[in-house]
Structure formats: C-alpha cells, structure tokens
Amino acid sequence: MIRQEEVFKIGKIGKPHGVKGEVAFRFSDDVFDRVDADYLILEVDGILVPFFLEEYRFRSDEVALVKFSGVDTVERASELTGCDVWFPRSLASVDDEELTWSQIVGYELRDVNNHGNEHIVGSIVDVDESTENVLLTLDNGMLVPAAYELIVDIDHSRQCLLMNLPDGLLNL
C-alpha cells in the first residue's frame, strides 16, 4: 500500500482526449519526464493507485496527453477525470539543484535561530507559485515566503525544511 508521506502531488487528470483512452494531465512538476518514470500514482476514491505509462506527449508547458496501460476507452478514461496525480519521493531526485517546490509539500517547516535552536512552525500543505514571490502555505493557515536566502537546509531524511525566518514574521 502506498502511503501519503511516500509521494508528493504533481497535478490532476483532466478530460479524456480522443477515443482510445488518452487523458489530459495538467501538471505542476515535470519530474515524471526528468527521471523517465514508468508509472504515476493516481488518487482513486481516496486510495493511491499506480498507473503505468504507455506513452505521453506534451501539449503545452503545463499539459501532457497521457495514455495509461489498461485504459483503452473514453469511458475508462472518463473515470479518471479529476483524479489527483502523485509521484513517488523515492524516484524523484533529492539533488537540491533540481528540487521543485512541490517536492517539499508535506515537509515540516522549522525556524532555526542564530543559535541553532529549531522551532516547529507547521507542515507545508501547499506552495503558491502564481506570482514571482513564492509562498508556502502551512497547515495552521500561515503563509511564509519561500525566499532562497531564508533557507538554511533541506533535510530529506527528516522531511524537514529549515529556515531562518525574520524576527516578527511569525507574529503577523
């Protein structure tokens, strides 16, 4: 069984494309193409299920047309419409040079002061990249700027983002 902490969300399945089971996949992270993945994980009725890729092609910078194994009709493809798409953390690169914001969703955000003491701020539930200033949304409703100069470290083994947040930011 695939557990939520083993994956990160990379998009959503849209409408069927054509009559042979192809679907539109709107993605926020192209990690599936960068690491040449064999499968994607779809959330079907609350359960994370692997779907093997037969082929895909890019329609735009945000949409790929995907054909999954065993999905051969428009009716079967329609059943997948609206499913969230996830990617295994184990297959994604943990090289911080190629790390994407979506890979840290689910990580715990900790504030590290100048003395090295850590304070848990919250868990990252979403990343807003719609503007030039990227914001991390935490499970407690807080928004934290995702400025590279504030990041101290990314600890993948603890699934933790360590930041040195400016004084007073957490009091807003």
Rank of each mutant, 00 (worst) to 15 (best):
M1H: 12
F8C: 02
G14R: 07
G14S: 10
K15V: 14
A24P: 00
R26L: 08
V31N: 01
V31S: 10
F32E: 01
F32Q: 01
D33H: 08
V35Q: 11
A37N: 02
D38A: 09
Y39H: 12
L42D: 03
L42Q: 01
E43F: 07
V44E: 10
G46H: 08
G46D: 02
V49M: 09
F51R: 12
F51W: 07
Y56P: 06
F58H: 15
E62Q: 11
V63M: 13
A64P: 12
F68L: 03
S69R: 14
S69Q: 15
G70Y: 01
G70V: 11
V71H: 09
V74T: 12
V74G: 05
E75M: 02
E75Q: 13
R76C: 00
A77K: 01
S78G: 09
T81E: 12
V85H: 00
P88M: 11
P88N: 12
R89I: 07
S90L: 05
L91I: 01
A92W: 12
A92K: 02
S93T: 15
E98M: 07
L99Q: 11
T100N: 11
T100K: 14
T100E: 14
T100R: 14
W101G: 03
Q103L: 05
Q103Y: 08
R110M: 07
N113F: 09
G116W: 08
N117W: 07
E118A: 15
D128W: 07
N133K: 10
T137W: 10
L138H: 05
L138F: 06
L138N: 02
V144G: 06
A146T: 10
A147H: 13
E149A: 12
I151W: 06
I151A: 13
V152D: 14
I154P: 03
C160E: 02
L161Y: 02
L162C: 03
M163L: 03
P166E: 11
P166D: 08
D167T: 08
L169I: 11
L169K: 04
